[in-house]
Amino acid sequence: MASPSNYGPYARIIDYARCMGCGTCEEVCKFIHDDNLPRIRVIEVTSGLLKPISCLHCYRAPCVEACPTGAMRRDEKGAVYVEESKCIGCMACLYACPFGVPEVHPMNGTSLKCDLCRDLIAGGASMPGCVAMCPAEAILYGSPQELAQEMKKRALANLLGLPQG
């Protein structure tokens, strides 16, 4: 089992500056999963401001630390996921999460959260669904270095007022 801080080669970030709050990611996520439940959710941060939130697959993930059964774990690609057959639904992960991300699966009572589309990627996809479908390219997937670079580039472009694309 991976230790909580065993950060993997891939990560995903949401560029809130670019995000338009359109909700495509949520719909895509719903569509991808058999149970029709989104793992990324658009919430109303303040009135009128819609932004998505999903698992950040933290570097030292408190949810993995808190999980009493080891159902919450990290795979070799860096995604923190729930092994459903071991999850007892205690939701310690939810209370441990600084962003309150995990949800109770309404059908199974287990913990429900983003796993960076593990199954899709294992099946050959290059990136999670939300990343692929985001119309504003606000969701990014890649190695931490790549992501940092991209974000830096974007911040610079933003600062200089350059057109982005």
Binding site: Y16, V45, K51, I53, C97, F99, G100, V101, M151
Partner: peptide, 16 residues
Amino acid sequence: PECRRKVGVKKMIRCK
């Protein structure tokens, strides 16, 4: 948890 989400997103918007 619900307030955490809002607070968290707000924080991230600010820093990123």
